[in-house]
Design a protein around this nucleic acid. Structure first.
Lengths: 166, 166
DNA sequence: ATCCACCGTTGCATTATGCAAATCTTGCAC
DNA sequence: GTGCAAGATTTGCATAATGCAACGGTGGAT
């Protein structure tokens, strides 16, 4: 924080702060979007819906792994989502020991509305940026991301800006 | 607007994806740092410690507000942190209806170790970036942040990359 | 002196979470 | 084909996180 750091400490700090601040902004947008559109659903539940939306129907274990939670947690969250009519369990004819969890029409609809809202919010911010700086953003972030050896941003549960921490 | 279409849909999408991917990377770093250093503490609890670390002792209501949770949640989280020896309640001589919550030595130590770890991880990533792109990152992110009318990155609970959502 | 707003806590209900055990299914070895 | 190990899902149990509502203490304004 405020202690002395190695040589390039100042530059690294500047980048760290810049990224974290931007991240914070995005987090706010995401939370606002869910609250505005999805009303009475918890974040963990919505996160599960987003996972299903981006990956299609999944068996329970895969879903739990993707979300980084215990299978028992996933089971019970699915229970609640099924109860609310947003998700459904389907038995797998291939293997009776597995089930697949998928979105219902209204579940898909919910995710779509939140996503749409969020994209509009972000677009509004981006459009307030001086045009010449937008290009720099994408390039620099890609460089940052590549340096972190992180896979490219395909649509994923993180796409809603909703991970379990941060 | 200066452009005709909300057109830059592709550009906006590209930026959105880039930022979200970078954010995801950061989130991973944060979670890894807490897990690596802090062992048996939950993320909400750690987040509270970070808040105290950056803002100094706070009264309970301010703390709850800063974290975006109900005062009752803050009360009980503080209970647990006090029990674990990381935080302490102090009566305020000025006003007997308020208390202040602060870090203990070991609480401060915990936060410092995690922060140090996280900074090193980020620094390692930044140092793998081509130097000429680092400057672009800071500038572009600042433009993005300003466009979002978000306050500058002062040290805050978010500094640990730990908000309640995202 | 009274009233009222604010503070922290507690009771209650629900959700989130992990670990461990139980149940059922599958695949494979023999 | 029997039996067993491994896998998938669920359930039991315990604890944490969370919000709302209510309560008792405090302090300021009138």
């Amino acid at each position: 924080m405020t202690e002395e750091l190695p040589p390039s400490g100042n530059e690294v700090d500047a980048i760290t702060d810049a990224v974290l601040t931007a991240s914070r902004l995005l987090v706010g947008v995401s939370a606002k979007s869910v609250a505005a559109v999805a009303g009475p659903i918890s974040l963990p539940q919505f996160r599960l819906l987003v996972a299903l939306s981006s990956r299609g129907p999944l068996k329970l274990v895969s879903l739990a792994e993707l979300l980084g939670v215990n299978p028992s947690t996933a089971t019970r969250t699915v229970d609640r989502l099924v109860g609310a009519g947003w998700a459904e369990r389907n038995s797998n004819p291939e293997s009776r020991r597995e089930i697949t969890v998928g979105l219902t029409g209204s579940g898909r609809d919910l995710v779509d509305r939140v996503t749409e809202y969020r994209r509009r919010e972000i677009a509004a911010i981006v459009q307030r940026m001086p045009a010449h700086r937008r290009e720099g953003l994408v390039e620099a972030l890609q460089a940052f991301t590549e340096a972190g050896a992180e896979p490219p941003a395909r649509t994923s549960p993180y796409d809603a800006g909703l991970t379990q921490w941060d």
